[in-house]
Design a protein around this nucleic acid. Structure first.
Lengths: 221, 221
DNA sequence: CATATAGTCAACAATGATGTCTACTACTAT
DNA sequence: ATAGTAGTAGACATCATTGTTGACTATATG
């Protein structure tokens, strides 16, 4: 009586299937890294037949590359997508909101964040990633607008903030027992990062020599 | 004429072999993550017979655990080992030297750094790692000695500095073409990090509200 | 209705990893 | 000299993954 063909999908929307596969690949990528991405594992996770995965992505490598591109594109869209129209209105996006946005984003998209970070960190040669370029560009504009210190090394600062903000959720996931503890950890990260960008972490009076040594280009007193 | 038994090792020092295996495992761990650590790959990389690896570590899991412990221990020893006797003499280790030491260490031990970071980041539950505890403890003492700002969240700050310093070499490795460019990148990281801990990254006059908001516990003006 | 599309299911050979085992060699200490 | 230790070499069964292929099915569109 029961249909012997239960469990069939026969999707009308191949793009949706493709996205499901990519999403599963992203999760695997975030969990185990690019080297241990297996088509079988991805297909299992996506609830899709292995053959189906091979229809969309002829080889394992194709899947890996497609996932990397997809991650890059999604990272940009999810983070900057709905912000693009806003930009022309708001001349300077406040740093606390920017950091909060980044911190929230990382916490809500831990796999995407992690996969993106490792891809962009370890990809050889010039950085072509849209999100990275936009992020650095925004930081550059911010400093030149007079709100951020001119003596910043924007790229290095971008690296520091992104690396720590995007990896923080891993730490939180491993060390927070419940969602309340999770929220508290997220708050702590935001507070400390704000504190750091506002005041640094050294007591100035105790480090006169260092201040002299490291303020070559900064003469804003 | 040539000995058919060339390539034999027949080592007198089994511990050395063990270390070689662990070192190879560490490299694999740093490259591909813990999930794709294979005994065969490790043995190949260590220039050791697969059987030999199985003599030292009965299963893949045993090798993985042993490597994690070894990484933890080595991270502590290599970083703090030769500093321990010094400590009683020098009451406060200057922050620039500390950061330089960390930055150099990461650059000279990229695999160890990376493997350690991921292990300690993703290990569930309380952090028992010696290096982490020591690092946080030192930071705590530094702030309480009056040289560091009292309002720091020491653990979060430790996370930020470690995550960025230990991952920076990956970025450098992927983006620096020669050793000269490498050195320059390392210098840039050190400079920017010092700048950040000394001055923050925002121009104070432009962020009066934020300063008010984020200086609850800090009343050192 | 006919056909193309998207997908399922099952089988297959090849490859490589795991874990075990046995026979062999070289070096060390008794 | 002999027994033990450390490592090599090779074989073996088991399993997972890769990439391919062929038969089948549900859905949409002409």
């Amino acid at each position: 009586m029961a249909s012997s063909k239960a469990g069939r999908r026969n999707n009308t929307d191949p793009d949706a299937t493709r996205r499901e596969i990519l999403q599963a690949a992203l999760e695997v990528l975030a969990k185990d890294g690019p080297e241990s991405l297996s088509v079988a594992e991805v297909a299992r996770r996506a609830g899709v037949n292995r053959g189906t995965a091979y229809q969309h992505f002829p080889t394992r490598e194709d899947l890996a590359h497609a996932t990397a591109s997809w991650v890059s594109e999604r990272m940009y869209q999810e983070f900057y997508g709905d912000l693009e129209q806003l930009e022309e209105v708001n001349e300077v996006y406040p740093p606390d909101l920017a950091l909060e946005r980044l911190s929230d984003f990382a916490m809500n998209n831990p796999e995407l964040s992690r996969a993106w970070l490792f891809d962009v960190m370890s990809t050889q040669g010039n950085v072509t990633d849209k999100f990275w370029k936009k992020y650095v560009e925004e930081l550059g504009e911010f400093t030149q607008s007079g709100y951020g210190r001119e003596d910043m090394d924007v790229e290095v600062f971008a690296f520091i903030t992104l690396a720590s903000a995007l990896l923080w959720p891993i730490w939180v996931g491993a060390h927070a027992k419940n969602s309340k503890a999770r929220d508290k950890m997220q708050q702590r990260f935001f507070d400390e990062m704000m504190r750091l960008v506002l005041f640094g972490s050294l007591v100035p009076e105790r480090h006169a020599k260092l201040i002299k040594r490291f303020s070559k280009r900064a003469k804003q007193d």
